[in-house]
Design a protein around this nucleic acid. Structure first.
Length: 257
DNA sequence: AAGAGTCTCAACCGCGGGGGA
DNA sequence: CTCCCCCGCGGTTGAGACTCT
């Protein structure tokens, strides 16, 4: 059972990289370029697996990396992107030149999470913590006793930080918590404008030719007939980013997936 | 000064998806 | 169409650094 290992573990180094290993990796990639990580270690004379080489290069050795502290602007940008994209660290990193997904993920978990909590904002949903207690109906397959625990909890919001005492469930193998709530923010964010034209959020992120484009700039030249969700959704209704019309990604609507 | 506790972040792990055979 | 290989992603871990008592 299980997957075969990505490489011969018995003959590979693990743990922190040495200066010599770094130098070998840099020299090899400078000479041959990135790619084919599987065969790279052998070719470069490294006793590492390809994944480890890739990670080391992308997260630490790449010449275009911006080392150093995150600026306040970057903080806010990450928060905004996270509210829209969730834990899609690679997508977020793609919008922050010189930053890596791993770096942003670590920074989120160590700094921004706490920052948002201090502001009274739930980092997972980007909603006020006390607001989350209201207007959320939880349909739970677990016992009524647990439901009572939730009601009595200060926030009433269910997440892993809250110690909900498990009780015997009616369906021990099935744990589906479905929540229904109204959209958080009924007001639409102000669309960006460039040169007198209004950009939808997708275009403002630099995504080109997206079917989710609602301003017809990013999709200019492409047929609009094949887009049922975006074409009929947007003329006046704000963003339809990834199929969501509200301009605010409500993760609770996705939790049941 | 030293031990305990906490924080940070580089690195690892396992999984899912894309693409070629 | 299916299988297999490889890449890339997100979650997690743990060693070292830092702070507190």
């Amino acid at each position: 059972m299980g997957r075969s290992p990505c490489c011969e573990k018995a003959h590979t180094n693990k743990g922190a990289w040495t200066k010599e290993e770094d130098d070998r990796l840099i020299a090899y990639i400078r000479a041959h370029g990135e790619g084919c990580w599987r065969s790279l270690p052998k070719a470069a004379g490294l006793l590492r697996c390809g994944k480890s080489c890739r990670l080391r290069w992308i997260n630490y050795l790449r010449p275009d990396l911006k080392r150093g502290n995150f600026t306040e602007e970057e903080d806010e940008f990450i928060i905004k992107l996270h509210s829209l994209l969730g834990n899609k660290w690679s997508l977020i990193a793609g919008k922050l030149p010189g930053r890596t997904d791993n770096e942003i993920k670590n920074y989120w978990n160590t700094h921004i999470r706490r920052k948002l909590l201090n502001r009274g904002i739930d980092p997972a949903t980007h909603r006020p913590l006390n607001e989350a207690a209201q207007d959320v109906t939880t349909i739970s397959f677990s016992g009524a006793k647990e439901e009572k625990e939730k009601v009595n909890s200060p926030s009433g919001f269910v997440n892993k930080d809250e110690k909900i005492i498990p009780v015997q469930e009616r369906c021990p193998d099935l744990n589906l918590d479905l929540r229904i709530s109204p959209p958080c923010d009924q007001t639409q964010p102000e669309p960006l404008k460039t040169g007198g034209r209004t950009l939808c959020f997708v275009c403002s992120l630099g995504v080109k030719n997206s079917k989710d484009c609602s301003c017809n700039i990013g999709t200019a030249g492409s047929s609009s007939s094949n887009s049922t969700s975006s074409s009929n959704s947007n003329s006046n209704s704000g963003y339809d980013f990834l199929g969501l019309k509200t301009g605010f990604w409500d993760y609770r609507s996705l939790e049941m997936e």
